[in-house]
C-alpha cells in the first residue's frame, strides 16, 4: 500500500534539489566541483587551453555514450559499441590507405567519402545482426552484444593481426584535430549528433516508441507498435553512432586498431546512468547525458592539472556514480515518506 501520507517533516535541501531531476542534481555537483577545483587550481582550469583540451577529449566518450544510451533506453544494452567502432575504423582506414589516389582532386575526395560509406555499411550490418538476434530470436541484449563484441573484435584482430593502420588524408585528420572558430571539430560533430538524437528521442514517433518499449515491451506490442522493428532500428542507430565515434577516434589518433578505446566500454554505461538514464530502460534524456559527460570531463581535466593519475580519475568516476545513484535512492525514500 503506497498510501503514505506523512506530511513533509523534513524537506531537506537534498530532497528539494532532487525534484529537479538529474540535470539539476548534476549541475549542483558540477558547481561544487568547479568551486573546489577552482580554489585548488585557480585560473588554470578555466584557461582557453584547458577548456579546449576538454573539448577535444569529451567527444569520443560522448558519442560512444550516446550509442550506449539509445540501447539502454530501449531496455537493452550494447556491449559491442567499441568493437563496432574499431571494426568500422579499420574498414575506413583500409579504404583510406589503399584506395585514396594522390593528394587532391575529385577522386581523392570521392574515395574518402567512399571510405566513410564503407564504415557506415559495416556498422549497419552489425546493427542489423544485433537487432535481429535480440528482437527476433529473443536473446537477452547483454548476451547478444557480448557475442557480437567478441566476434567483431575477433574479425578486427584476424584481419589486421593486431596491427595498426595509420596515415590518413588531411580532411580526415582534421575531423579529429581541427579547430573551427576555437571549437574543436570533434566537439562540433558531437553536438551535431546530440541535437538530432535528442529530437529523434523526444519528438519522433520512433523515440516515443523506444521509451515505451524500454518500460514494457509487451504492452507496447499490444498497442500496435511493431516492437521488433523498433528494437532492430535501435541497434542500427546505436551502431551508426558508434561509426561516428570511430571516425572521430581514428582521426584524432591518425590510426586505427582492433583494441582502441576498450576501457571506454563500461564507462559509457556509467556516464549514461549518471546522466539519469534508467539502467532498466524507459527513462533518460540527452541533456542529462551531456551534463554527466561535462562533469566527468571536468574531473578528469582537473585531476590531470593536479597531476593525479588518470586511474584515480576512473576511481572517482566509479565513486561518483554510486554516490549520485545512492542520492537518488535516498531521495526516493524520503519522497515516499513525503507523499
Amino acid at each position: 500500500m503506497s498510501a503514505d501520507t506523512r506530511t513533509a517533516r523534513n524537506v531537506s535541501l537534498l530532497t528539494r534539489i532532487g525534484r529537479g531531476g538529474p540535470v539539476t542534481v548534476l549541475s549542483l555537483v558540477l558547481l561544487a566541483l568547479l568551486l573546489i577545483f577552482g580554489l585548488l587550481l585557480g585560473d588554470q582550469l578555466f584557461s582557453v587551453g584547458a577548456l579546449q583540451s576538454m573539448a577535444f577529449q569529451l567527444p569520443e566518450l560522448g558519442i560512444l555514450s550516446l550509442a550506449m544510451m539509445v540501447a539502454l533506453l530501449s531496455g537493452g544494452l550494447n556491449l559491442s559499441i567499441i568493437a563496432t567502432a574499431n571494426l568500422c575504423a579499420l574498414t575506413m582506414a583500409y579504404v583510406l590507405t589503399h584506395h585514396v589516389p594522390g593528394a587532391e582532386g575529385f577522386m581523392w575526395g570521392a574515395w574518402q567519402v567512399m571510405a566513410v560509406l564503407a564504415g557506415i555499411a559495416v556498422a549497419t550490418a552489425i546493427g542489423l545482426l544485433n537487432g535481429a538476434v535480440i528482437a527476433y530470436l529473443g536473446v537477452s541484449p547483454i548476451l547478444a552484444t557480448l557475442g557480437t563484441m567478441t566476434m567483431c573484435k575477433g574479425l578486427s584482430i584476424g584481419l589486421t593481426r593486431g596491427n595498426v593502420i595509420s596515415g590518413f588524408p588531411d580532411p580526415i585528420v582534421f575531423l579529429g584535430n581541427g579547430v573551427i572558430g576555437g571549437v574543436p571539430v570533434a566537439m562540433i560533430i558531437f553536438l551535431a549528433l546530440c541535437a538530432p538524437v535528442a529530437v529523434l528521442l523526444n519528438k519522433s514517433p520512433f523515440g516515443h516508441k523506444i521509451y515505451m518499449i524500454g518500460s514494457n515491451e509487451k504492452a507496447t506490442r499490444y498497442s500496435g507498435v511493431d516492437t521488433r522493428r523498433v528494437t532492430l532500428k535501435v541497434y542500427v542507430l546505436s551502431s551508426l553512432l558508434a561509426v561516428a565515434a570511430a571516425l572521430v577516434m581514428m582521426a584524432r589518433f591518425n590510426s586505427a586498431n582492433a583494441s582502441y578505446g576498450e576501457s571506454y566500454l563500461l564507462v559509457t554505461i556509467l556516464a549514461a546512468v549518471l546522466g539519469g538514464v534508467d539502467p532498466f530502460g524507459g527513462f533518460g534524456k540527452v541533456g542529462g547525458l551531456m551534463m554527466a559527460l561535462i562533469l566527468l570531463q571536468v574531473i578528469s581535466s582537473a585531476f590531470n592539472l593536479l597531476n593525479f593519475s588518470p586511474f584515480l580519475t576512473v576511481a572517482i568516476w566509479g565513486a561518483l556514480i554510486i554516490g549520485v545513484t545512492a542520492l537518488a535512492v535516498l531521495r526516493e525514500g524520503l519522497g515516499g515518506l513525503r507523499r
Binding site: K203, M212, S215, A219, T220
Partner: peptide
C-alpha cells in the same frame, strides 16, 4: 494494457504515434 511507469499522455498517444507526425516526421 498499459505501460505503467510512463506518462498517461504517452499511453494515450501510443496507438496513433505515426499518424500524429507532421511533415518532418515529428510530433
Amino acid at each position: 494494457g498499459l505501460v505503467l511507469e510512463q506518462p498517461i499522455s504517452a499511453n494515450i498517444l501510443i496507438t496513433i504515434l505515426d499518424k500524429l507526425a507532421d511533415g518532418l516526421g515529428l510530433i
